[in-house]
């Protein structure tokens, strides 16, 4: 009896953790490209809110979550473009313009929600995708293969992002403009164009992460739906040392800790629940503090590129 409960707990923790990691993974992978190119986008939270809202709105009006998803991607694209305009072309201080983007995204999505929806309503979401054979494997099947397809996509994007970043010419350019923009410029790479592209990729993925919250997870929209998840995604990029696999590890660690605390609470183990709620945050800090090793940062991170002023 005890054994069954323990096994059930383990399966439960893993299954929930895998699902919870999805929005962090999507947003952090996008942010990784932006930061690799040298732009620090703290406005991810705002982009996620806009993505979440438009995904909801269009699904609400059309009844088709795929239309909603598409519009989230478009909104993510536009928000990424806005951030690029402000931080690349106009060379604004990046941390602060990110906070501006966050407030703008939160405000605008809240405003449009009031104007065009005006009340909490649920929408049809994406159901779980049943994978033949895989979903039917006893025990593991329900953990890894009982989610909607955005979850799989997020995990699939990890190797894809790795490949794009390290094995394609574009990835090379992104890394070059993020570490030695002057040298890249000398070689004829348009630093600002690459940064625009990277920020837009980041925006689209953040839009998708937002859409996952409304279409994939909650199937509804409410004010401040992201509740700080975008900021955590930014932190996870640092945690993952700007590497897709590191980001995967960080997202999973954070989400597993979160899933664990949910299960511990639900199973009725009594201790102050605040301790449980802070568990993922503490775990992440501790994991980073003890993992002493190679520390590398995109050298040009946060530095607007200026042809005139080298060095």
């Amino acid at each position: 009896m005890e054994h069954i409960i323990q096994q059930g707990l383990l399966v439960g923790v893993l299954a929930t953790g895998v699902r919870l990691a999805t929005p962090f993974l999507l947003a952090a992978l996008g942010e990784m490209f932006a930061q690799r190119s040298g732009v620090f986008n703290l406005g991810i939270e705002g982009i996620m809110m806009m993505g979440a809202f438009f995904g909801f709105l269009v699904t609400f009006f059309t009844g088709n979550p795929y239309f909603g998803l598409g519009s989230s991607l478009i909104v993510g694209f536009l928000m990424g473009l806005l951030m690029a305009l402000v931080s690349v072309t106009l060379k604004a201080e990046q941390g602060i313009s990110g906070i501006g983007l966050y407030m703008f995204g939160w405000g605008l999505s809240g405003l449009l929600f009031r104007l065009y929806v005006g009340g909490i309503t649920s929408i049809p979401g994406l159901g779980p995708l049943h994978l033949p054979v895989l979903s039917d494997i006893p025990h593991i099947g329900s953990i890894l293969f009982n989610h909607n397809w955005i979850v799989y996509l997020a995990y699939l994007l990890v190797p894809v992002a790795w490949f794009v970043l390290f094995k394609t010419p574009w990835g090379l350019r992104v890394r070059a403009v993020g570490t030695t923009p002057e040298a890249a410029d000398t070689l004829g790479v348009s630093v600002n164009a690459v940064r625009y592209q990277a920020l837009i990729v980041g925006g689209v993925l953040a839009g998708l992460a937002g859409a996952y919250l409304t279409i994939g997870q909650a199937n509804m929209y409410a004010d401040n739906i992201t509740a700080g998840r975008g900021f955590i995604a930014v932190a996870l990029v640092y945690f993952g040392r700007w590497n897709p696999w590191g980001i995967l590890a960080g997202s999973l660690l954070f989400s597993m800790a979160d899933s664990f605390q949910l299960w511990v609470q639900v199973m009725g183990i009594t201790f102050p629940y605040e301790l449980a709620v802070v568990l993922p945050y503490v775990t992440t800090i501790l994991a980073l503090a003890v993992s002493v090793g190679r520390v590398w940062t995109p050298a040009a991170l946060g530095r607007p590129f200026d042809r005139g002023s080298r060095g």
Binding site: G8, G12, A15, T16, R19, L20, L213, Q217, A218, M220, A222, I225, T226, A227, R229, S259, L262, W263, Q265, V266, M267
Partner: peptide, 14 residues
């Protein structure tokens, strides 16, 4: 609301 939804799912799973 997303967090509350996840907690409800865990309750039901348990």
């Amino acid at each position: 609301i997303v967090g509350a939804g996840e907690m409800a799912k865990v309750h039901m799973d348990a």
